[in-house]
Design a protein around this nucleic acid. Structure first.
Lengths: 364, 364
DNA sequence: TTGTATGCGTTATCAC
DNA sequence: GTGATAACGCATACAA
């Protein structure tokens, strides 16, 4: 049982340290912040002040400091949907980079809801975040948000998507290269009849990945059978692609299409596909190879573990922070800064779900 | 390219709204906050003020407001390790409950590092969070943190662990019941030779789960073969139990022990076990059933999908928020409030990794 | 080398 | 019904 009376231990303020140590608040401020003028303060004074501060358990009041200095030392990080499996690592990357810079990340989760997104944006602005990072792969945001973001001159970066018009910095994986890597891998393993499960139209990643596939196919003389090309439906639930991958693959099998590999849009789709294949008695990778995209945490643990294209999530988060911090510093130093649209290199991770096509064993 | 000059659009303040609308700052404050005194303000005045506020795009300055009102409208949420798979849903639960209460969650990730934990704690206190939630399942924190937390009279709750001494509220799953549910399920399916992979000693969940197992075994006359009882090693990496589950099960198989089921400490361990079994040609669930604990996102997607005991993570997060909010409100209203140590009911989720023991087919 | 005074944007207590 | 005014805790220009 807590008595409210216990609560009345008033916070110790700078003035307290000042009176206790016998100096003025100004001097205390200078010393404790190690401000430029601290150079001229007598060492003995410094020590006295620091000691009493520690003795009294002085803790600076961030609100007051921010109000005065106009700097909140925080960066807002707005996620469209935090349950999307790749968010965790992005958070890590972002948080870590901000921590190095002595900034605090303020994470917000829009639950894929437009009004929630806007509400949180407002909240973050009220709290005067010095920078903003927006994480999403959905394109359902319309131009208003763009206007919002670029109008308020606060350094921003997006991760996993781009706004049209190049007004805002972005960090994305190089989807085209990633798709090429995966397809190249399958091709090298001898696969020629490959089923493709493309991403939903609404996802910004879908088009470039498909482009990567087409370009490689064209270059390598690989034929893409339109009957083996499917496209995921639009959905707001980031975890729904497992179900879709499962169902689509099931359909493919029922139609007795021949293929020796499935190249799925992302890892969840791939895992769904594997599940359908396995259930139908088609062994992965013996009878059919499967590739994913993302390298979410599950992929290495799945059975068979998934060959996939890794997005460097942590690095992407860190890079976004660097971009934003550069903007912040630029404004401080009254420098110009540039909008950058960076594509990061993906990495092919070869695991157990792909294998050279066997001459004897076959498609179901 | 951003010109710093663009930046110089000074934020519009309450005073601006006041002068523009022709009223005093005091009146503006009363109107915009819908304070009690707003009752006495002429409707026309209200409208004028609200209109000009909107026209100017006035946004209240949270720092100033907090400095004055002493209320930050935020709650700190300190995770020991955010990559632990169950953190995402806890975040959801916490964030959602706080959102309802118009509070902002400030998430921090200690990376399992003591100094980082303390640094973030300090940061949160500097920012005057009104409440604190600490999420962990590791017990490596020593008494100092306890002292820290309960000394600074700020309403707090822990999720997934308890501090000795009952000084701080906590929300945990009822581990004993959960373990009983899983074992009961296996028992009902006819399993009698069951291998157990216990949790590491350092984890607070380990002991009660084992107790649940023992109690049920005793009550049901089920014999526990000590040769089939293993214990996970201590580890700071929340994702390492997959590897351990794999290795331990492999060992068990190599020693040609007979068992028809594996009851694993958690889902990752269970998935590791399944992987080992499958690799050795032991089919799950035909030849061997496996159960987990937690119901992390992977578990429903794995092949076979995992029978497990679900921890109601979101609900646990929400409950922690309610506890903390009650503390906050109690302090505001100068009421007393109670430390509560709540155990939430787990739920058995039956999926494809368990099956009635077959009379014909057998262990390995 | 240190102290005084002022203001950041708000809210709350009074007075009118 | 509305307007002065003070104060929250800190940082800084300027004075000493």
């Amino acid at each position: 049982m807590k008595r409210p009376s216990e609560k009345s231990q008033a916070a110790v303020t700078m003035r307290d340290v000042a009176t206790q140590s016998g100096f003025s608040p100004a001097t205390v401020s200078i010393v404790l912040n190690n401000a430029p003028l601290a150079r001229y303060i007598a060492p003995a004074t410094k020590k006295r002040i620091e000691d009493t501060a520690k003795k009294l358990g002085y803790r600076p009041n961030a609100m007051a400091r921010f109000l005065r200095s106009k700097r909140s030392h925080s960066v807002g990080v707005l996620f469209f949907d935090i349950t999307d499996p790749f968010c965790t690592l992005i958070m890590r990357g972002v948080e870590n980079a901000l921590y190095q810079a002595s900034y605090l990340a303020i994470f917000a989760d829009a639950h894929n809801q437009r009004n929630r997104f806007e509400r949180y944006l407002e909240l973050l602005l009220e709290r005067h975040v010095e920078g903003l990072i927006v994480v999403a792969n959905w394109l359902f945001v319309d131009i208003h948000v763009l206007a919002d973001l670029s109008k308020r001159n606060i350094p921003s970066a997006t991760i996993g998507w781009e706004l049209p018009g190049n007004n805002i910095s972005s960090v994305m994986v190089d989807n085209e290269t990633g798709a090429r890597l995966a397809l190249e891998h399958l091709h090298q393993l001898g696969h020629r009849k490959i089923a493709f499960i493309r991403g939903p139209k609404m996802l910004i990643d879908s088009a470039p990945r498909w482009r990567g596939i087409q370009k490689f196919a064209h270059g390598a003389g690989l034929e893409i059978d339109p009957a083996l090309v499917l496209q995921l439906p639009e959905s707001l639930d980031p975890n729904s692609s497992f179900e879709s991958g499962y169902r689509y693959t099931e359909d493919l099998l029922e139609q007795r299409k021949k293929f020796t590999a499935v190249m799925a849009f992302d890892d969840l789709t791939a895992l769904g596909a594997i599940r359908a294949l396995t259930k139908a008695g088609v062994k992965v990778p013996e009878h059919c190879s499967v590739t994913g995209f993302d390298d979410i945490a599950l992929s290495s643990l799945a059975a068979p573990s998934l060959t996939t294209v890794r997005q460097p999530m942590e690095a992407m988060g860190a890079l976004a922070v660097n971009i934003v911090m550069d903007g912040i510093n630029a404004a401080l130093e009254k420098r110009d800064w540039n909008v950058v649209n960076q594509k990061m290199n993906p990495e092919l991770v070869i695991r157990d779900s792909t294998r050279a096509v066997s001459l004897t064993g076959g498609d179901d």
